[in-house]
């Protein structure tokens, strides 16, 4: 499902000739339906790695293969389609549209122009997802009327509306209290198991990381599997 081959990412440092090597020869293989967590201290490059996996950022060297396609060979439109159709995103902050209801927020990704299903089908699926994340009673509420946990559940439903094969979650519980973080962790595992969605979670929460089938540690730019 996902393969990283010798991926490097350098960032220029103002006033210094030598760039900062954030990611160094990262190699990673994630099979379909697998759940993987990447842990590491703040500033270790976890989010950068996730951005490279999703095609939001380009590696300085190496290759990223998602669902058999080398992202380097894809143009802007193809990358957009890949992100929209094959990848789902959950961010630390939910980035919900405040002007839209829960249902509408979930539907938003289908408006990017790659979805060929009818409006009714989309709405039906969105409602199912909302129910799946436990927000059936709040489908017409706006984000301002939801708790932080409910907002993150909405973001999770939004990430799954296009039935992606790969779900990327960047610190999904980072802004939540322990109870809510636990609920969201369970929900992620449940979705992975029930829907067979490949799950890559970047976190510095060991509680969440350990719930995944494999745990990798990113430290000083290098990735290593935790035993």
């Amino acid at each position: 499902m996902l393969e990283l081959i010798n991926v490097c990412r350098d960032f220029p440092v103002p006033g210094v000739n030598e760039p900062a090597h954030i990611l160094k020869n990262i190699n990673l293989r994630v099979e379909a339906g697998q759940s993987v967590s990447i842990v590491g201290p703040s500033g270790s490059g976890k989010s950068t790695l996730l951005n490279i996996i999703s095609g939001l950022d380009e590696p300085s060297a190496g290759a990223v293969i998602v669902n058999g396609s080398d992202l380097k060979q894809m143009n802007e439109k193809a990358l957009a389609k890949l992100r929209n159709q094959d990848i789902g995103f959950v961010f630390q902050l939910h980035h919900l549209l405040p002007q839209c209801s829960v249902l509408e927020n979930v539907i938003v990704p289908t408006l990017a122009g790659f979805c060929e299903e009818s409006k009714n089908q989309i709405e039906q699926r969105a409602l199912e997802l909302i129910e799946a994340v436990g927000l059936a009673d709040h489908k017409n509420h706006r984000p301002g009327e939801l708790s932080v946990g409910q907002r993150q559940r909405t973001a999770l439903a939004r990430a799954l509306v296009n039935e992606p094969k790969l779900l990327l979650a960047d610190e999904p519980t980072g802004a939540l209290d322990a109870d809510t973080a636990g609920e969201i962790s369970e929900l992620l595992i449940e979705l992975n198991e029930k829907r067979k969605v490949t799950l890559v979670v970047v976190t510095h929460s060991m509680d969440l990381a350990k719930k995944m089938s494999k745990v990798y540690k990113l430290d000083n730019g290098s990735l290593s599997e935790e035993s």
Partner: peptide, 16 residues
């Protein structure tokens, strides 16, 4: 800008 970045991440092209 955050919303726009999110939409971009969700597969919306910049032109869109």
């Amino acid at each position: 800008r955050g919303e726009l970045a999110m939409l971009w991440a969700l597969g919306f092209e910049k032109a869109t």
